[in-house]
């Protein structure tokens, strides 16, 4: 009964992803820039290479980054749907409105996972995935990180009514989430305040799981910070919690009414 509508939302998202070439291209190029410019730059400065290089440490972080940006942009397209009026098609259809949140979360996660796979292929071709990638952990990492990023994005989208706030969101949410996540430095080496922030940042656990999958198990100072079960529990727990909150927010009549108001009178103002 609800499968076709959910599929409809996912199909539309994937269709748009492959139609927006620049979005796809920048999703591929952005991680590479970090890896090649920041990573290689640090290594040149510190004179390190191989398994202990900073560039190598960055690999899980840039893979996570492709999902963070991919999922956030897809989830925030919900706001665009509100503004452009496409949301009308969704709210008038005969299912509970929280399904819109669930379908959008799934489609944003899928869009993120697709972009992560493309980046993964690129990383492989460039030789960044060498010794012993743990495949099951990598798959688990991509699935859970995509979901956590998508549900974070939906949480924001449920509270955002216009795209004017979009740039603000990017700067105030995506970048802090990325910088304070252990993507660029091991969490255990951060000053205590930043370490605390990184610990409550759910995205940290996604990157950490990817570190387990990609960096291997040898004891280095670049190791993962948390155990695999902790990572997965936090990631799934946050996804569930965020989705429930976003659903509640979206289904509440009073919360919804201003949206219809906005839809009905946008151009007349």
């Amino acid at each position: 009964m609800i499968l076709r509508p959910v599929y409809a939302v996912i199909e539309r998202e994937v269709l748009k992803l492959f139609r927006q070439r620049t979005r796809l291209l920048s999703a591929m190029v952005r991680p590479l820039i970090w890896l090649l410019v920041i990573g290689a730059g640090f290594d040149a400065m510190l004179g390190r290479s191989g398994n202990l290089s900073y560039q190598y440490f960055l690999v899980p972080g840039v893979l996570g980054m492709s999902m963070l940006f991919g999922a956030m942009l897809a989830a925030l397209s919900t706001v665009y749907d509100k503004e452009s009026g496409v949301m009308r098609m969704l709210v008038i259809a005969p299912f509970e409105h929280y399904w819109i949140v669930i379908a959008k979360t799934l489609s944003a996660a899928l869009a993120a996972a697709i972009q992560a796979l493309l980046v993964l292929v690129l990383l492989f071709l460039l030789g960044y995935l060498k010794n012993g990638v743990v495949l099951p952990l990598l798959i688990a990492g991509i699935v859970t990180t995509s979901l956590v990023c998508a549900s974070m994005g939906m949480l924001i989208a449920a509270w955002t009514r216009t795209l004017d706030n979009f740039a603000v969101m990017m700067n105030l949410v995506i970048f802090p989430v990325f910088f304070l996540s252990g993507s660029l430095y091991p969490v255990q080496h951060l000053p205590s305040v930043l370490r605390f922030v990184a610990t409550i940042n759910p995205y940290t656990y996604g990157v950490d799981l990817l570190k387990h999958a990609i960096l291997g198990i040898e004891a280095t100072s670049f190791n993962a910070d948390f155990s695999v079960p902790v990572n997965i529990a936090v990631l799934l727990g946050f996804t569930l919690l965020a989705t429930v909150i976003a659903c509640l927010r979206f289904s509440r009549d009073t919360a919804y009414e201003p949206l219809i108001h906005l839809l009905a009178r946008k151009r007349s103002d």
Binding site: R12, K16, R19, S84, G85, V86, R88, M89, I92, A93, P94, L263, A264, K266, R267
Partner: peptide, 16 residues
């Protein structure tokens, strides 16, 4: 909602 169709005052179409 299962029994009705609504054409809103403003477009509901996806222009892309």
């Amino acid at each position: 909602r299962a029994a009705i169709g609504v054409v809103f005052q403003e477009s509901a179409l996806d222009r892309t």
